[in-house]
Design a protein around this nucleic acid. Structure first.
Lengths: 230, 230
DNA sequence: TTTAATGATGACTGTTTAGTCACCATATCG
DNA sequence: CGATATGGTGACTAAACAGTCATCATTAAA
């Protein structure tokens, strides 16, 4: 857990890569190569531990022990635990931002309800792709996303927040286009998100939910009927 | 956090109230009265800290500092952090068990689909009662229920598990009575639970979801249309 | 009242933890 | 090559932490 240090970090200096965490020179050189590999090792170890013990319940010592590295090495790559959580989520966050960015354009461009529906379908497909190629990470997200947004779990909570916002934006557009029943979009977007996340959580956690595709089909069918305009 | 002690507790002796935690003699006496009050103090303090910092991020020292008590006092009332979490959830768990117990009987007794529907409505009402009279506790549950089920958070995860099971049982009965569309009950029960929990989470967390009753209405409407037989 | 049981306390112990650092190894650059 | 930057290491520090215990206070029982 984050030890409760009395030191107040008055200036929240992000962006400043402390000398210890400097980047290696050549972008494809040996240094850069090793660095990527080492980070990957730390991150896979951390991910498994986070899933088993929770982020807060995992110590830096746990991580280095699992990697077989020395403790000092960890700090050559990450500022602290929060930093490695951030690094873990970064790729997923970027993928999702890209997906939502693309969709934002298509949504604007859509000229008819059917066109808009098609856009949403493509969105669902893209998101599914991101989700299923990052199952362990998604599980971590689902596991920690409702935590208090302080300390090492903050990046997860931030991601959850942006997911909710994205869901709301898309729902609002659909709502304006009369694609949905006249229910509060804040409510419908959260309900759909909540249902989806719960199902994903069970699916990835113990896999006794049968075929993912069947599950998705059932979910979509429920949502469509639950939200179809009268 | 649960310190990683090497000591293995071979015999999992619950039920045995260690001498330090013995009960006071007279059931309405001063001792018993003080004891209840003191426990309540510890528990309210702990609940607020748990909500702010997470269960894992809260230490015994935090709790006693907030109550103004001495550390040793805490251990006169609770074995450890897990124990106070258990104590916090106990009343809610009992209420819910009672509600579900009653419903189980009514469900058996129901002779027609309308009768069964009425039973479900009564269930929803009862559960709402429990939820709204325990908002902070429900928030704690929602916040921690997807955690790894180890250490102090185990009671929360256990409760979450029993909620899922209860939801599935009820859904199965409804399914058998052809009250629902022919979708996998495991999927529908989780979807409805997930949607409900997500909405509750937002509602209790920052209260920007408008009127709870409006929200419930929207949710019910969505669920009914989403699950109504063809 | 006397005796026993329960409660309060905070200093104390042993351990765990985050984070550092001096020292050495290896890669990059001039 | 020599100089410099980056990487690896594990002992070390200071602080935090769970849990204990001797001591004194209060309540209950005899």
């Amino acid at each position: 857990m984050m030890r409760k240090t009395a030191t107040k970090n008055a200036t929240t200096t992000r962006k400043k890569p402390s000398p210890r965490l400097a980047r290696p020179g050549p972008i494809g050189g040996k240094r850069d190569e090793n660095r990527k590999q080492r980070r990957a090792e730390f991150e896979t170890a951390a991910l498994e531990l986070f899933l088993r013990q929770g982020i807060e319940g995992t110590t830096i010592d746990d991580i280095v022990e699992r990697t077989g590295a020395a403790k000092g090495s960890f700090y050559r790559y990450y500022e602290d635990k929060r930093d490695i959580v951030l690094a873990l989520l970064q790729p997923v966050k970027e993928s999702l931002d890209e997906v939502f960015g693309n969709v934002a354009g298509s949504v604007e461009a859509a000229r008819s309800p059917p066109e808009l529906m098609e856009t949403y379908q493509m969105l669902a497909l893209s998101i599914s792709g991101v989700i299923f190629s990052n199952q362990r990470l998604v599980l971590l997200y689902l596991q920690e996303s409702r935590s208090p947004g302080v300390g090492a779990r903050e990046p997860v909570v931030a991601l959850a927040d942006s997911m909710k916002k994205a869901a709301l934006r898309l729902t609002l557009v659909a709502h304006e286009h009369k694609l949905l029943r006249d229910l509060d979009p804040r409510v419908t977007s959260l309900a759909v998100l909540g249902a989806s996340e719960q199902l994903l959580f069970e699916l990835f956690r113990d896999g006794t939910l049968g075929e993912p595709l069947k599950m998705a089909e059932a979910l979509i069918s429920m949502v469509l009927d639950g939200l179809r305009p009268d």
